[in-house]
Design a protein around this nucleic acid. Structure first.
Lengths: 331, 331
DNA sequence: AACATCATTGTCAGCGCTGTCAAGACGAAG
DNA sequence: CTTCGTCTTGACAGCGCTGACAATGATGTT
């Protein structure tokens, strides 16, 4: 940094100001310093910055999620944003199924271990009131991914789950389906409910009045198999099954093949997320593509850019990915 | 730290010595300091340690791997080891398919970005000579996971792939199978070759002399489908197919169902890794369980503990996981 | 007993940066 | 032309720890 200051003919502090984008720096000075930084290929030392300043240059990412695909994608996005802003990423697994006291003990231990500038929260932690209260009490900033309850409580990143499910409903409707069923997700996941409701509402809007049977697939492959089997046993047998995520959709596909039914000829199956499983099953899954990695990146940026207005909710776009698991009904 | 020193009645430097496990510290002093640390719940500041000392307290993890399951598991292990030793983890994706100069440029950029105490290398980076040379030239320590070439070149963590594949061969043999086929992995993966060879050698040892057809499944679901289809078209049709990893085994299972064959009644299919896919297919996959997370942890520990003898190779145990995708042949 | 040797403990500067505060520059208002 | 306020820049201490070196005490050697 000294070299930069000397080359630019300014003081150390001025270089620091430019690096941190502080106000009250003349344009001329900024240009000089930036040129010097570029010429010397200077990269500030994170350890020193964190020691001297009030920031830790660490972003925390909190998980309580069984899906490695989702986890991995979010993490990749968060990681890239961190790396580009010279921050470290720390990851922690929280078990949120335990009673309040135990959860708070986990959190205290986590905080004692090392200070963070803020946390990115993934579902279902996103809607865990004990956790949110704890972070608020500790005065730690956080950004929530796909928040359901109290959306104004913190900055957040989300997609319109209901609209995604509605798009899927329209896709199936347009193919000609008139016998639907739903494999729902766990109640602890706000998104699960929004997807289910969005799907139903759209069908109702389209004028569909029959009952729509549903079974819980718990967002997992294994529970998806059972849910699929139960739905396929209904009369009339559904010709299109919407699962609230890809993992349970994969389970439904297994249930179909166990019942001797061909996808998509006998039954159309579709999921939600466009996770890695969507292309690990055959036929490839028609699904709603959430930009998961992008959501991670956006969440981290929301945390790092402190100049934003308070508690922005950043909405990202989904899109329908039509693959081979949906087709017009043959019955 | 000052508080600890005062409470223990020693100097700052002595506390530092205890924390870092330096020699020349009397047992009495160590005990006093440790008691004080425990009482005050003291955790040393990583930023200050890295600023003052010669270490960065950062472990790098290098990937060039398409499998999110493997990646995620390794990462979890490495991460836990890092967290427990107060280190940060940085992750980098390297594209090793590019020409030498470009690869070296990627690496230089990576190093300039922030200093690391060492790297954990995952396959296929493990056997990338350009990368190894670069790290050696830069004087950076590294630990390799599942090294194939030049095993004595660095510390490493591995399982006996050949023995794992041999165990699988014996399992299929004992079930009564006498028509085998292999879906191999990519040549750049040392483990892929060892698995194939271990499988073949064991069958030969058991007295099997027929040719064993093989097709490349490139360690991926998609290529596994094609490889499986080609193998199932052979005459006589194999009754047991060994895929060199779980992803390609999942592909083979799809090929079976496309060919109208039931797994395991008509064809037994098995994989290798016991990754998350093994339980995302139906029937659940018989496979060889590699302790992937444990390998990550062990690799990080090898990097962090500098008191080890030079270039230790740490061998971990595999075990056969018999699930529902293998059964006695019906033909 | 005097001295060399080594294990143990302490002192202190300084790692690279930012926060605080003060000084300088400049323009507007009186 | 002075006075004041605002904007811009700089000087300097110190964040919490470790490395180099000094000091002290214990042990062995002649």
């Amino acid at each position: 940094m000294e070299d930069v200051a000397r080359l630019a003919g300014v003081s150390l502090k001025s270089v620091s100001r430019v690096i941190n984008g502080e106000p009250h720096v003349s344009a001329k000075l900024r240009v000089k310093v930036e040129a010097a930084i570029a010429e010397l290929n200077y990269v500030p030392d994170t350890a020193a910055r964190s020691l001297a300043g009030s920031r830790a240059f660490i972003v925390g990412l909190l998980f309580d999620n069984p899906s490695p695909n989702y986890t991995m994608n979010i993490q990749t996005g968060v990681y890239e944003a961190c790396r580009d802003s010279q921050h470290h990423l720390r990851i922690d697994n929280i078990d949120s199924t335990v009673p309040r006291e135990e959860l708070e003990a986990q959190l205290s231990a986590m905080l004692r271990n090392s200070r963070c500038d803020g946390f990115v929260l993934t579902p279902p932690l996103t809607d865990n009131v004990v956790l949110l209260d704890f972070l608020d009490r500790s005065g730690i900033r956080y950004v929530r991914i796909a928040p359901d309850i109290q959306p104004e409580r913190s900055p957040g990143v989300f997609i319109d789950d209901a609209a995604g499910a509605a798009a899927m409903a329209r896709h199936l409707w347009d193919l000609g389906h008139r016998h639907f069923a739903i494999v729902c997700g766990p109640d602890s996941h706000g998104a699960a409910g929004r997807r289910k409701q969005g799907f139903i509402d759209e069908l109702r809007t389209l004028g569909f009045t029959d009952p729509i049977p549903e079974e819980s697939g718990g967002f997992s492959f294994e529970l998806g198999i059972g849910a699929g089997a139960r739905l396929l046993a209904q009369t009339p047998r559904p010709t299109a099954i919407f699962a609230a995520n890809d993992d349970s959709a994969a389970g439904v596909m297994v249930a179909c093949s166990q019942a001797g039914l061909n996808v998509p000829r006998d039954v159309s199956v579709c999921g939600f997320d466009d996770s890695w499983v969507a292309k690990s099953v055959w036929p490839y899954l028609t699904t709603v593509c959430q930009p998961i990695e992008e959501m991670g990146r956006a969440a981290a940026l929301l945390l790092l850019r402190r100049d934003e207005p308070e508690n922005v909710l950043h909405k990202l776009d989904f899109h329908l990915v039509v693959r081979d698991s949906t087709a017009p009904p043959t019955r």
